[in-house]
Nucleic acid binder design. Structure first.
Lengths: 220, 220
DNA sequence: TCATTTATTTTGAGTAGTCAAAATAAATCC
DNA sequence: GGATTTATTTTGACTACTCAAAATAAATGA
């Protein structure tokens, strides 16, 4: 069995390769794991020996098929646990990420399957992040964000791609959660500001950076 | 925060001091934790330095008030998790001990409180083991066992004090679970056998050792 | 192209936990 | 009361991480 350190390394390589290049720079991984770069070099060499990643020295890491299998399983646990904590235990969606970070390494496949059934086999977690299937299939559809989408068309939020409690609290307070309908009334690239309009509320101005973390699809 | 190794040491000291002497021999602790005695000596000295146990060299260990607090919290997590796994996820009571061994170290107090509420603040787990209260109170009532109780009186099983999956499976198959009504029809100390009688079933013969792990109270 | 900046790797050392096996102390047994 | 058994402790070594800081390689820039 992989230790929880190993599981974390693999999970973060997977998360970093979402959308982006498939060769992850060591520094990016070090930052994501909150360890110094030298530690990542050492660990990645060990993971490569174990056949879980491919290491291109001075360039970066990439998951092998085996490593990806492990990473997807951890991610599935993380996201199903988050869903359980919000849907069943009614916890705040801003708090569940930290909880799931621990539980994802302690939960067995048996428990996970039952949790999955209890929750009705959800396909996304409370933040809209896709839950990998039992077979390791991950829906990685590309959505526009509030920073890139069309103006003045009705939209629906599908995903909030920021795990920090502060951002999620901010989003919740302003009704910016998956399912919410809204439109982008204005976007000022120079000022770096986006103006959002939700039916029945006053316009909300957020930074371009924040808007870029909220994924949407055309409503209706 | 205590590591999960530390939590395990403290939990097992607590479990071993249930009923028995309060000074736990190092060998007994080593056996319970499945490590060699030398390891326990080393670890116990570290725990003593941290103020979690009192170490009487060449005699044994005992929990300090602080150590007992931690141990009770871990035990509460373990038993509430077991209850959740059986009552909500409908898992087999023989399988949940191993699962809870992992989860007890990963679950936060916040999640635990919500789980406790969801389960209706149970006072015992599916094996009848008492669940320590949030305040750290542990019901340690003494019950007779099927090896020591009166003969031919109606009894009710209150607790099965064996965590091994094999024993629990055996008990389940023979209806020997908390709540079951039965009586001891015969007890042969020489042969080491106890004959049990449950309404509507044929008599069941079990060893004295097995009988000693099943706690009962007078029925009605 | 040569110097500088930036990313990565190496080296040496530390922490938490473990085991095997030798040393020691305590208990038990003639 | 000395010899033996049994429990515990000590010693030295190993694994799986981790960091700080020096060394190296690659990229950038004048």
């Amino acid at each position: 069995m992989a230790t929880s350190t190993v599981e974390n390394y693999l999970k973060h390589v997977l998360l970093l390769s979402e959308g982006a290049e498939d060769l992850i720079p060591m520094g990016a991984l070090a930052e994501a794991l909150a360890v110094v770069p030298g530690t990542v070099t050492t660990m990645v060499k060990a993971l490569a020996d174990a056949g879980l990643v491919e290491h291109r020295p001075r360039h970066g890491v990439r998951l092998t098929a085996g490593g990806r299998r492990v990473a997807l399983s951890v991610l599935r646990k993380h996201r199903l646990v988050e869903t359980f904590l919000v849907n069943v235990l009614k916890m705040d969606w801003a708090a569940v990420h930290a909880e799931a970070e621990q539980l994802e390494h302690a939960i067995s496949d048996e428990v996970l399957d039952r949790l999955d059934a209890l929750l009705g086999h959800p396909t996304t977690d409370p933040h809209g992040d896709p839950i990998p299937s039992r077979q390791g299939k991950l829906n990685s559809q590309i959505y526009p964000t509030l920073a890139t989408c069309v103006l003045d068309k009705p939209l629906r939020i599908v995903r909030v791609t920021d795990q920090s409690a502060e951002f999620l609290q901010f989003a919740e307070q302003n009704g910016l959660q998956p399912g919410t309908g809204l439109r982008v009334a204005d976007r000022n690239l120079v000022a770096g500001l986006v103006t959002l309009k939700r039916a029945g509320t006053r316009p909300l101005v957020v930074s371009l950076a924040a808007a870029g973390r909220i994924l949407v699809e055309p409503a209706r």
